[in-house]
Design a protein around this nucleic acid. Structure first.
Length: 831
DNA sequence: TTGCAATGCGCC
DNA sequence: AAAGGGCGCATTGCAA
């Protein structure tokens, strides 16, 4: 299928994009008439829409019979199962025409991910990359998909008439009309490649053992059919469902955010301009400018031959309408000269490439724990400060205090840098959420936003795109209450349910760690319990009842009789909590020492304390590392999905370190993803929920959101909790309970967060979409990296051959449907 | 004008 | 010697 009028990089396929053609292929034995095995349908031709309507029964369910369609063909077609490459996209495009797509059988994109989850940097998962990779498809008689760029790309003619390096591709509508023969071959090849890919992947997955807990359950093809096939379909329905967003609320929030950002930005610029006049006009969001302003002249920590310049010109919008020398009128942009503010300021953190870092953490070290509210250019506040009205303590100021000479100047610097942090955080909220959530490109006609939920991570987690709802500010940090903009439709409510410490529970299960399992069994505050286990003096205090592990207020009590552990030993608990999360991710003592700003020795000691009662965890981690670095080269998740690593013989030691950490993390993160997936399948299978009208909308790692009628909220909530607590066919196969917290609310702020969407498709049909609207596609010729973006604009599918030949035959005979037929041998001329 | 690498930041 | 797993996405500044 090819689609026009959609920009896949920006827009959701729900309610965006139009199909311009599609092709069908069901294997070489199928005969569409005259020995042709592939048909291609032109929807741009006169009456294109009518042709599509004729195919409606093919897309839809058998029960929806259209009289206009010859019933014989209809019946045989509808019994077919369809395989797609990136089903999500095609499904949405077809649904844009009002058809419900049925007969989903498999998605080769997901199958490929299951077979090898580590292709993202090495080929990727586009149809082109997969079908052209001899390790995937090795049929000598078939060639893989050939990219549009290869076939239709032309060097863009430069102004001087010479051929440029930039490759352009004409709009697909033009190609379809003007390069007809080639175009038909190209699109036919997509469906053929998809079928070929499907057969290959089926063989691959069938050859992989599927083991759960050491017991053979079948092959990975069985796994696919049991889990990822229905999961793929579920994700698509969730994308279609979408979520309602309150735009007027967001518009209000935007005003406030912009105003606050402006104030904080001016505060910083005013201060900086005392040292460097042009800083008054700088872009505080540019890390390049900031780096020079704060650390100009510093050496690169990785290459002592390189250093930042002491001053540099930057191009900024000429808002002040300054008329530069030699110019008559103000230009659109102008140059400003930035220089280092204070040479005593020393960078403490560096970026990966060795330059001083200006990230939030680095800036906070400079500023210390001070408020961004003080504006020392404001006389009144300066006076107040001099009189000692503000309670600032010198200890709270960061390293900038001394570097800028201490006293008032030092304080000024710290407060200004704190204001800078504020600007950055507000900016990211605006550009990541407040703006995109108001745009129409990610929402459909009904005003709901339809992001995408993808199975495209190495561990099997979902990712959410357009928008990326998974990085919404956490409840406590959501200064503009953005989650409040996600609302239930009138008469409906949301159920927001999340797992408590899912990954830690998984780790406890996988490592069979007694201490952790006991702590979970005991319930209460897990991190406090960890702290108690790590520090004998805390344990003593608990045993003597001079502190409480946790406290459940009884009627009439307004505070605990003795202090709580989390208050009395706050820093120990904080460390315990960080260790709980960090260790599962493979973090080392050196990393922790930097985070905590303590010596490596001290960090090592703390880590040792953590492992002391959790020896099983260390053993388990060592086993995983060995497994990853052995000839097996892989680790597995709870449900038996594998993650393959490169051979350790061929990597650097730092890459080996990465492999070892991933080997520890993947089973934990990937198993958590398995649990969340099973829970969602349980929820979607639940007949009572269906009956009550509750639908899944979103998932974010350990949290799900449903929407349904308010009146049945409580009943539905109980069912959801049940499904999540026993996600494996109604059972919990873990050694540890799954704790679930669920709320019923009108908007998301009342509870936890989440969302995502998928893409994918596979086998008899090939639907071609073209996107990019009327714009020409411009690609530099050296861009050989097949990105997912390119696969997203295509959708390919095929029908599993059951009665393939007769169907093909009938279709081919319906001349009104078919403008042309292409056989694969004619396809894909190489240029 | 467009794409890209580097950087940074949010979440779990 | 360095040492955090997994993502998506925005912006900047530069290259083609």
């Amino acid at each position: 299928m090819q689609v026009a009028k959609i920009d896949v990089k920006q827009e959701t396929p729900v309610d965006h994009g139009e199909m311009i053609c599609f092709s069908i292929y069901s294997g070489p034995e199928a005969d569409f008439g005259n020995g042709k095995s592939c048909i291609w349908v032109d929807l741009l031709a006169e009456g294109g829409k009518t042709i599509l309507a004729e195919f409606a029964p093919f897309f839809e369910d058998t029960s929806i019979k259209k009289a206009m369609f010859p019933s014989l063909i209809l019946l045989s077609l509808c019994r077919h199962l369809v395989v797609w490459h990136n089903y999500s996209f095609d499904n949405h495009i077809i649904e844009n025409y009002g058809f419900k797509v049925s007969g989903f059988h498999a998605d080769t994109m997901h199958m490929a991910r299951l077979w090898d989850s580590s292709r993202q940097t090495e080929g990727g998962y586009s149809l082109e990359a997969l079908s052209g990779d001899p390790r995937v498809c090795h049929d000598e008689n078939l060639i893989g998909k050939v990219s549009m760029k290869t076939i239709f790309g032309r060097g863009k003619v430069k102004k001087d008439g010479s051929n440029g390096k930039i490759i352009t591709i004409p709009p697909v509508e033009d190609l379809q009309r003007e390069e007809r023969k080639l175009w038909i071959c190209y699109s036919a090849l997509d469906s053929i490649s998809t079928l070929n890919l499907y057969e290959s992947l089926k063989r691959k997955l069938s050859g992989m053992e599927w083991k759960v807990d050491g017991r053979i359950e079948g092959t990975m093809l069985d796994f696919y059919e049991k889990y990822w096939q229905p999961f793929g379909e579920l994700l698509v329905t969730m994308e279609t469902e979408g979520m309602l967003v309150d735009r007027s609320y967001l518009a209000e929030v935007e005003k406030v955010a912009r105003a606050e950002q402006q104030v904080a930005g001016n505060r910083f610029r005013n201060w900086a301009s005392k040292y460097c006049p042009d800083a008054k006009y700088m872009n505080v969001g540019s890390d390049t400018q900031l780096r020079l302003l704060l650390f100009g002249g510093t050496l690169n920590s990785k290459d002592q031959n390189e250093s930042l310049p002491l001053e540099k010109d930057f191009k900024v919008p000429n808002i002040e309408k300054v008329i530069e020398e030699g110019k008559k009128a103000p230009t659109k942009f102008r140059n400003i000269k930035l220089c280092r503010l204070e040479s005593k300021l020393e960078p403490e953190m560096y970026t990966a490439s060795g330059w001083p870092s200006v990230c939030g953490d680095a800036l906070k070290t400079l500023a210390g724990k001070v408020s961004a509210e003080f504006d020392f250019t404001d006389e009144a506040q300066v006076l107040e400060t001099k009189e000692g009205v503000s309670e600032d303590k010198e200890a709270a100021y960061g390293t900038a205090y001394a570097a800028f000479g201490g006293g008032l100047k030092g304080k000024e610097a710290c407060h200004a840098i704190a204001a800078l942090c504020e600007v950055c955080s507000i900016d990211s909220l605006i550009s990541n959420f407040i703006l995109p959530l108001q745009g129409s490109h990610i929402s459909g006609k009904n005003g709901r936003i339809h992001g995408s939920l993808n199975i495209n991570t190495e561990t099997g987690r979902l990712s959410a795109r357009r928008p990326s709802l998974q990085n919404q500010p956490a409840l406590e940090k959501d200064r503009y209450k953005i989650r409040q903009a996600f609302v239930a439709a009138p008469g409906n409510s949301l159920i927001v349910a999340d797992y408590g410490q899912l990954e830690l529970r998984i780790l406890a299960h996988l490592a069979n760690c007694k201490s952790m399992l006991d702590a979970f069994k005991a319930g209460g505050d897990f991190h406090s319990r960890t702290a108690m286990n790590m520090y004998p003096h805390i344990r003593e205090a608990v045993e003597q009842k001079s502190v409480l592990l946790e406290w459940h207020p009884q009627p009439g009590e307004d505070k605990p009789p003795v202090p709580l552990l989390k208050d009395a030993f706050a820093s120990e608990r904080r460390k315990a909590k960080m260790l709980n999360f960090s260790i599962a991710y493979g973090k080392t003592a050196v990393g922790l020492s930097r985070d905590w700003k303590v010596s490596v020795k001290e960090a090592k000691e703390t880590v040792a304390r953590w492992y002391n009662e959790r020896k099983e965890v260390r053993n388990w981690q060592d086993e995983r590392k060995k497994e990853a670095c052995s000839t097996k080269r892989c680790v597995h998740t709870l449900l038996g999905r594998a993650r393959l690593f490169p051979s350790v013989d061929q990597v650097t030691s730092s890459q080996r370190g990465h492999i070892e950490r991933a080997a520890i993390n993947t089973p934990v993160q990937g198993s958590a993803a398995d649990v969340a997936m099973c829970a969602m399948l349980e929820i979607s299978k639940n007949l009572r929920l269906k009956e009550l009208g509750w639908r899944l909308l979103l998932q974010v790692h350990d949290e799900v959101i449903l929407e349904g009628p308010t009146e049945s909220g409580e009943e539905a909530k109980a069912i959801v909790v049940e499904c999540m607590s026993k996600p494996f066919d109604g059972k919990n196969i873990l050694r540890v309970d799954l704790s679930v917290d669920a709320k019923c609310a009108q908007n998301w702020i009342m509870g936890p967060i989440q969302s995502s969407w998928i893409f994918h498709s596979a086998f008899f049909f090939s639907l071609f979409f073209c996107h990019m609207g009327n714009r020409h596609l411009c690609l530099p010729s050296n861009n050989i990296r097949p990105k997912e973006a390119s696969s997203v604009r295509r959708a390919e599918f095929s029908i599993v051959r059951r009665t393939g030949n007769s169907v093909a035959h009938h279709l081919a005979r319906n001349a009104r449907c078919i403008s042309d037929i292409a056989v694969w041998k004619d396809a894909a001329p190489r240029r």
